[in-house]
């Protein structure tokens, strides 16, 4: 059975708006930036500005899984978003064990425990916490997710800037076309920590570091009940500096259709002075509607790119738009885009 098309069968999201896609959608479509919390920065009187994922009102049952007892927040977000996207298919144990692929994309990744373990090491390596160190590896969230689902198949963690998420979508599509998997979860996940908010502030003074996860559940055409198709993922146009970023954004845009009034463009812009010139210039000619979730939710790197895809597909599921382009212009690696219809 030759697979040639890839469809979206499920969506999930954890964000500063809450622990579900409906919460993300309501916030994004309200267009009002969510409230900002302050995060203490050691050695500073003035706190850093972040948008935290709220403590869940009714704690998702999966968070009681033994594998998540010692994990940092990023794994909780990734697992909750993935389960929301997987939906009823989670019950098909044998299929999940053999035929479900997992791709987790991160930029900062397990930054909280990494900073915390290194601080303990600086104080005294002999008493640095053995319980914390294993959770610092980039693939801890993907490993915990596989254990929670009993998924023993292909499982990659990709690292890169925001655009790494769309490389993850393309990787999952490849696996489906090659028959390596019959379904694939693609998750973007990040967590907050003062060290990351501190770093982000150095580059964009008014940027707000944010956290959470977004999940797409992709399948080959033979498992129906899908509501959107992955039409395209552009090339990943790498860039090394500001000038190349403008050119990369332009070339990415050129690989996606011109667009029409009944279509949506979901951008990675943040409405910060000077931050989004490359992306705004690239899409100056877009005739349809626009949505920029990071203006509302903040800078959550790969999780934000996942929210863009999840919101685009969710609007197709509701029939609000016929097609949606997703544009991700990262800060430090690549411009890459996708189209769903």
């Amino acid at each position: 059975m030759v697979v040639s098309r890839v469809f979206v069968r499920g969506l999930g999201a954890v964000s500063p708006a809450g622990w579900s896609l409906p919460a993300l959608r309501a916030a994004a479509e309200h267009h009002e930036p969510l409230p900002v919390q302050s995060l203490a920065r050691p050695g500073w009187a003035e706190p850093l500005r972040v948008r935290q994922v709220p403590t869940p009102v009714d704690r998702p049952r999966i968070l009681a899984h033994p594998r998540l007892r010692r994990s940092s927040a990023i794994s909780h977000y990734a697992v909750a978003a993935a389960l929301e996207a997987l939906g009823p298919d989670v019950a098909d144990g044998a299929w999940v064990a053999e035929r479900l692929g997992i791709v987790v994309c991160v930029m900062a990744g397990s930054v909280c425990y990494s900073r915390r373990f290194f601080e303990e090491t600086l104080r005294d390596p002999a008493t640095a916490s053995p319980l914390v160190f294993p959770e610092t590896v980039f693939n801890a969230p993907a490993s915990h997710l596989a254990a929670c689902l009993g998924a023993g198949g292909s499982n990659y963690t990709l690292v890169g800037d925001n655009g790494a998420y769309l490389q993850g979508v393309a990787l999952a599509a490849d696996w489906l076309l090659n028959g390596r998997v019959a379904g694939c979860l693609v998750i973007g996940a990040e967590e907050t920590d003062w060290i990351m908010a501190d770093a982000l502030r150095l580059f964009r003074r008014r940027a707000v570091h944010s956290a959470g996860a977004g999940a797409l559940y992709l399948v080959a055409e033979d498992r129906a009940q899908t509501f959107a198709e992955l039409v395209a993922v552009t090339d990943a146009f790498s860039f090394a500096d500001r000038r190349e970023q403008v050119e990369a954004a332009r070339r990415m845009r050129a690989q996606l259709p011109a667009g029409a009034p009944g279509e949506l463009l979901c951008l990675s812009t943040r409405n910060l002075p000077g931050a989004d010139l490359a992306e705004e210039n690239a899409w100056g000619d877009w005739p349809g509607a626009r949505l920029a979730p990071k203006v509302v939710l903040g800078e959550a790197f790969t999780a934000a790119a996942a929210w863009q895809c999840v919101l685009a597909c969710e609007s197709l599921r509701r029939g609000k738009f016929k097609a949606a382009n997703v544009s991700v212009v990262g800060a430090s690696q690549q411009a890459i885009g996708a189209r769903f219809a």
């Binding site: 033994p66 010692r70 008493t127 640095a128 916490s129 053995p130 319980l131 294993p134």
Partner: peptide, 17 residues
């Protein structure tokens, strides 16, 4: 209580500290 070898190592460190 379902603790494992990593918990044991952590306990050893905590009792020392």
């Amino acid at each position: 209580l379902g603790l494992d070898s990593v918990d044991a190592l952590q306990l050893v460190v905590a009792l020392d500290k």
